[in-house]
Amino acid sequence: MASQADYRDRQFLAVIGDEDSVTGLLLAGIGHVTAPPDNQKNFLVVDAKTDTASIEAAFERFTTERKDIGIVLINQHIADRIRNRVDTYTQAFPTILEIPSKDHPYDPEKDSVLRRVRRLFGE
């Protein structure tokens, strides 16, 4: 398990989502851009033109490279595009949460937590 010190540094929420989801969450004040040399954002707006590779790269950046992110929010339909990555993610921090989007309602069948529940009871 990660140490308390490691956990304490994780102070940002990151979001990978469609424009409305990201706008909504940024309105709550979670958006952060780091100092000029890096200018790293903690969000990614995904539209129809965004390719899967860049979603995967953002997911990798938020979960592995950056050590200041505590929770990663991702639209469920976008998580579906990198489902393998999301399902094989086992680290304690950051926590991945799948959230519904405007055009794609939340499907409990695909939720990674509920899949874990099914696996536990189906054994």
Binding site: M1, Q4, Y7, R8, R10, Q11, F12, L13, E19, D20, V22, T23, L26, A28, G29, I30, G31, H32, V33, N39, N42, V45, G70, I71
Partner: peptide, 27 residues
């Protein structure tokens, strides 16, 4: 009202805060 208006120098006003007294596995 979307990404065209985002501030390029935005700073997070709301952050994750983990409690020290968490019971081991579930802070």
């Amino acid at each position: 009202y979307g990404s065209d208006y985002y501030d390029g120098r935005m700073q997070a006003g709301r952050r994750v805060v983990g409690a020290e007294g968490g019971s081991g596995a579930e802070p």
